[in-house]
Design a protein around this nucleic acid. Sequence first.
DNA 1: CTGAAAGCGCTTACAG
DNA 2: CTGAAAGCGCTTACAG
Lengths: 344, 344
Amino acid sequence: MKGIRQLADQLNISIGTVSRALNGRPDVNEETRKRVLEAAAELGYVPNQSGRSLRQGTTNAIGFMVESGFDTAGNPDNFFLGVFDGVQTVLSRHHLDLVVLPCATDEDPTQYLRRMVARRLVDALIISATRRKDERIELLNKARIPFIALGRSATPGDHPWIDLDFEGVAHRAVDRLVARGHRRVAVCVPSNDINLGFVFLDAYRAALGRHGIPFEPGLVIRVASSEQGGYQAAHELLTMAEPATAVVLIYELMAIGFYRRLNEAGLSPGRDIAVIAFRESPLSRFLSPPLTCFRMSLRDLGIALGESLLASMPAYAEVYPQGIVHRVWPMELIEGGSDQAISG
Amino acid sequence: MKGIRQLADQLNISIGTVSRALNGRPDVNEETRKRVLEAAAELGYVPNQSGRSLRQGTTNAIGFMVESGFDTAGNPDNFFLGVFDGVQTVLSRHHLDLVVLPCATDEDPTQYLRRMVARRLVDALIISATRRKDERIELLNKARIPFIALGRSATPGDHPWIDLDFEGVAHRAVDRLVARGHRRVAVCVPSNDINLGFVFLDAYRAALGRHGIPFEPGLVIRVASSEQGGYQAAHELLTMAEPATAVVLIYELMAIGFYRRLNEAGLSPGRDIAVIAFRESPLSRFLSPPLTCFRMSLRDLGIALGESLLASMPAYAEVYPQGIVHRVWPMELIEGGSDQAISG
DNA sequence: CTGAAAGCGCTTACAG
DNA sequence: CTGAAAGCGCTTACAG
């Protein structure tokens, strides 16, 4: 099956009618439509997307930009695959396809995105791993392409975004630890300029402030978002003049290395040092002790991302009247034993 | 900047010349080419991909199909992101872009692929998580779209593929364990119909055979490719009438749950039971004891996939004269302490 | 070396 | 309800 021409010839009708029948236009005889649909199914005809795109000015594809080498290292159990699944649930309602655009580690993310936008591969975009200052936001605003950011940024603009509730997590974590007598609570944040590090740190300071605990820069440990980073963080903590008695980890993968280093020092997480991690992952409860951390549904987040993106696209705004979404995604505390240690 | 028309008008030349200049055709005055290139850069003009695709019959995009819910759960440290990076290194040489096509959990992979192929979104495909019998291979063969499979399959066809060296790993793992006196070596494989489970199991049987050890179906533990699966596997092993003294895990994530369950039973991996896992991941060496497992470069695998795919595309076969690649990817043994346990 | 024109596969006003 | 035709943005033989 080559194209609409062949299908039309086969049926002895015009390509216009075939197109209208296939696209569900109302002004087609039902008998004709049935014949067209059957023939298309039998011959496996599906419209060439390039032809449609060129004519309609729309690709019916939504892009999701991810980066191989950046923040993503901190997301173990296929964080993105879970989110994709939710996004697709929404997109499939409208016959839109999700296309993931992975930016290579050796390419500048803004340059990469510029190319993708210019090629007009997708109608709208989801970007992730937002930086404190994120040029991609300016780029997309200027290009007037609809997009939503998974993550906030200090870059101005009233684009839609959804971000995890770093503030809520920081406050609840600090509250729990302070309630157990801890006054020296360390925090592990990424060493790069990803925005979540700033948001988390600000909330951590505010939480300490509520308890009248002065902020100590020395308790902010900046490491890679990985097992290795966690190992290094524990090492730094152990070599502090006056070690922290509790720690909050921004990535649960860090916990693996963190636990390991503590064990090497003959210390037990949960008994000698209290540990709270950010997001729950499948490994959380298989650590000893299980991690106290925060739960969320990746799929639901994906659904929210998809719906909020469509809400910002003129063609779908009617179906999703939520307007420009700015949303903090709630996280639910899951108690493990890792924060049982008591201080003071 | 709307299109080539505007750019041409601006420069007072025809769109044909603009196109030729931009595409590096030799029959363009160098002075003219320079003007065109400069104007394009200044105005941020990039050809609309739909227009090019329609005219050329090629999209300049390569698809990489992944599945959210299948085998991928067993791949923790961003297995695919690492591979993508290598693939992109190759594609960027030819101004091809990588587009990842994630099949949702609730969609049939073959149906999904059929749609993607029909839409003509990409020129060629990489598929992963091949099944024992994989309809996608038949589909792609029939559609005559170039593709390479990451993973073998029993489905016939002489398409190119690259697969990890499950045989080598199974043989070396069994050899090591037998050398330490083990005769009852269990193996954990996925409970679904992914092909690697079959390949691995066959090699395991062959390896046992070389040592004159009879194959015992009871020592094949089928569980999910996850921490939870590993936990369950250890549980099953502990409740065997005559427990295995060693185990080979097909996914390293399983080790987390496996270790946990052993610890709950007061047993130490590496001391009481020997454990060898398949692929090294960042977490391998942070477990206690570190995992004995097998190392490979995700990036190099991606490069090989990219080059082998291009080799199968007429337009690039000259640059990559390797023909139809059927390749087993080597893995290097990394000693941890997890297989130190001695038996007999 | 450049321009004018055809045509890739579609969708969609416009007639009838 | 259907057909004929225009045109989306490109690339590429074909003239000159």
